[in-house]
Amino acid sequence: MNLHGKKFLLVEDDHHIYLLIKAMLKPYDIELKLAKDGELGLQEALSGDYNLILLDIMLPKKDGLLLCKELKEAKIETPLIMLTAKVEESDKILGLELGADDYVTKPFSPKELMARIKAVLRRFEKVKKLMKKKGQTLNFTNIDLKIDLRSYEVYVRSKRVNIAPKELELLAFLAKNPNQAFSREELLDNLWQTGSQHTRTIDEHVKRIRRKLKDAEIKLMPIKTVWGVGYKFKVEENRDV
């Protein structure tokens, strides 16, 4: 993973954390921009001018979870790692469900954070290549479903479905591998790069995707549960455009 010349945004109000990360990134010639509160962090992140966002949860003016949610609603695709002093599993899962790509619990070692950064960026590049594979639009005409990977939009019966970027990535990953069952751990490894103890986040995403497709009156629900394994995208007809 070549990090040379990349630009990171750190949203963090602890100056000691900033100095630690700045020193850690110096050998890689990475530009690090600091935003000391959630509102400033949102303004910077919305510019889309960063390769990675490092986001603290406990922030002045706007907390990191709300900021993460607003970024995903704005369809900002920049990879995001949450920095959290909270150790409760529910807080970690919530961050992942809101769209974070990974999390690091404070206090952390520079080596651990660097490894997480490289893993998330590798995963991000892998997903981008996946989205470009076999065309940029997936049409499933028998169920009136279209997944547009260029605009990050999903349509059912030609009507747009309000779907979050991470939900779209999960749906597209399954759709690009029709009738193939994936475990929750495999889906996490491909789309979140996190450990298997957070498989619940996959179930929550699938639940939301199914609800949104059902509300859009899709003809047949394509995401099927494979008991004892995980999930698959079951469809008889698939045409790429």
Rank of each mutant, 00 (worst) to 15 (best):
I76G: 05
K75P: 11
A45W: 00
G195E: 13
D91H: 11
A216Q: 00
T225D: 10
W227C: 03
D56S: 09
S158G: 14
P222F: 13
K62S: 03
G48F: 02
V154E: 00
M82P: 02
E204Q: 15
L171G: 05
T201G: 03
K224Y: 03
V241A: 10
H4P: 08
K134Q: 15
W227Y: 12
A175K: 06
I163H: 07
E217F: 06
N142D: 15
T199V: 13
S109R: 12
L67S: 05
N2R: 09
H4W: 11
L10C: 07
L25A: 04
L145W: 04
A119L: 12
A74N: 07
T78S: 08
L55T: 00
Y28F: 10
D102G: 06
D14E: 11
F182C: 05
M131C: 10
M1S: 15
T199I: 14
S151I: 09
K129T: 11
N139Y: 14
L130H: 14
K128L: 14
D14S: 10
T137P: 08
E70L: 11
K69T: 09
H198N: 09
L138M: 13
N139R: 15
M114L: 15
D144V: 02
N190C: 13
R150W: 12
R157G: 08
L32P: 04
K22V: 02
Q43C: 06
E97I: 06
N162F: 13
L80W: 07
W192K: 11
L55N: 02
D148I: 03
R116C: 03
V206R: 01
E167M: 06
S196N: 13
L187D: 05
T78A: 05
L52Q: 01
E39F: 09
K7G: 07
R184D: 15
K219T: 09
G48R: 13
T105I: 14
E31K: 13
K33I: 12
A119D: 12
E31Y: 07
N2T: 10
R160I: 12
G228H: 04
A181I: 02
K212P: 00
D56T: 08
L170Y: 04
V156G: 01
V104K: 01
K111G: 08
H198F: 11
R150Q: 15
F108W: 05
E70T: 03
D101V: 10
K232F: 10
S90H: 08
D29M: 12
V229I: 13
T141Y: 13
S109L: 12
L55M: 09
A100C: 11
L19H: 14
F173R: 05
W192P: 03
M131W: 10
A74W: 01
I223S: 01
E237N: 10
A85Y: 05
K134D: 14
Y103K: 00
G41S: 06
K212W: 01
F173D: 09
Q43K: 15
I143E: 04
F140N: 02
L171M: 11
G228V: 06
E237S: 14
K118D: 11
Q180I: 14
I57T: 00
K86Y: 08
V154H: 04
K36N: 11
L32S: 08
L145Q: 01
I30L: 06
K129D: 14
L168C: 05
L71Q: 04
